[in-house]
Design a protein around this nucleic acid. Structure first.
Length: 320
DNA sequence: CTCCAGGGTTGGA
DNA sequence: TCCAACCATGGA
């Protein structure tokens, strides 16, 4: 029974400085300790088919939704700081910049104290080395609830490459985009309002199942109606209730609910135990002949208590 | 044709 | 609560 941690209780240290030359950052964020930007970038680069941001020279550029509009931001950095630039000619207003910073802090989970996680993993034979190897890697989140839900649903029971292809088709069919003067087009994930009015047939070209198309539209309607939102889920009191609320949506089962809890609602104890990637990672690390059983996983995860999401994310990281 | 992929649902112990 | 059976789709 985890208590919810309001997103804005954390102090954020950032300075807005004048950009005196083209490459100097508009904003510098102090990185938390520990932080590992290279590992973060490696995670971001796990699919060449990612359509929501572009990776170049260790920096990610994407359109960030901000109060009805969107800001193009380039995020680079190292293990001690993140550097944010706004490459468009018109610099965003201060409050938009602040919102961008909030998004980025959330995206990379910068405000979490990982000390307890690393101390706990010392006692886990499966995780001990993994935790050290990727120290400073934080769970890369999906701040937008609708995006997180759609991504989880599209990712059910299909390989990641195919999931990325489906996401790209969804985004390029129904998302907004903006062309930048670097010649590239940057995309925003489709809004619930846009998907809510579609029919299942409209989504079949994604090559998802009818069932998944129905789930996406159902989720979009709930969000467009306002009955479902990230804030509402976070306001429910504890993550278990949020998970139950998510599972009200037909087509959202335990894996999907936990995936969303982990990547969007930031529940560090979310545990998608049915995940085949997690199972394969454990199998490989323990040199098992077969994927571990649910009981084996539960047994192993007993020492992860409270940090199951982080352990899972780190184990995923071992897969590529 | 078979098997797998970052599952969901139903129905029965 | 847990498990088996069935469902569904594309790619290797």
């Amino acid at each position: 029974m985890n208590r919810m941690i309001p997103a804005d209780t954390n102090v954020s240290h950032f300075e807005i400085g004048a950009a005196d030359c083209a490459r100097s950052p508009d904003i510098v964020l102090c990185a938390p300790v520990p932080f590992n930007w290279d590992e973060t970038v490696r995670y971001l680069g796990r699919s060449a088919n990612e359509c929501l941001y572009r990776l170049k020279d260790g920096a990610a550029t994407r359109l960030i939704p901000c109060g009805g509009t969107a800001v193009l931001a380039e995020i680079g950095g190292d293990n001690s700081a993140l550097r944010i630039r706004f490459p468009e000619k018109r610099k965003p207003a201060d409050e938009v910049q602040s919102e961008t910073v909030r998004y980025i802090r959330d995206w990379f989970d910068l405000d979490r104290d990982l000390g307890p996680f690393y101390r706990q993993m010392e006692n886990c034979p499966v995780m001990k080395d993994v935790a050290k190897a990727y120290e400073g890697l934080r769970i890369v989140g999906v701040p937008d609830l609708f995006e997180a839900l759609c991504w989880a649903v599209l990712g059910q029971q299909v390989n990641l490459a195919f999931a990325y292809a489906q996401k790209r088709r969804l985004v390029e069919a129904f998302g907004e985009s903006r062309r930048h003067d670097d010649g590239r087009t940057y995309w925003l994930f489709p809004t619930p309002a846009r998907i809510a009015h579609l029919s299942v047939e409209d989504l079949l070209p994604l090559k998802c199942t009818r069932r998944k198309a129905e789930t996406l539209i159902d989720a979009a309607r709930r969000m467009a109606d306002g009955v479902l939102s990230r804030d509402r889920l976070l306001g429910l009191g504890d993550f278990r209730e949020a998970g139950q609320a998510l599972r009200q949506i037909p087509g959202v089962g335990p894996w999907t609910a936990n995936y969303v809890l982990m990547r969007c609602l930031r529940d560090p104890s979310a545990f998608p135990i049915e995940d085949v990637g997690l199972q394969n990672a454990v199998k490989s690390r323990l040199r098992l002949d077969a994927k571990p059983t649910r009981a084996q996983l539960l047994d192993m995860a007993a020492v992860w208590r409270g940090w199951e999401a982080y352990a899972t994310f780190y184990l995923w990281r071992t897969l590529y």
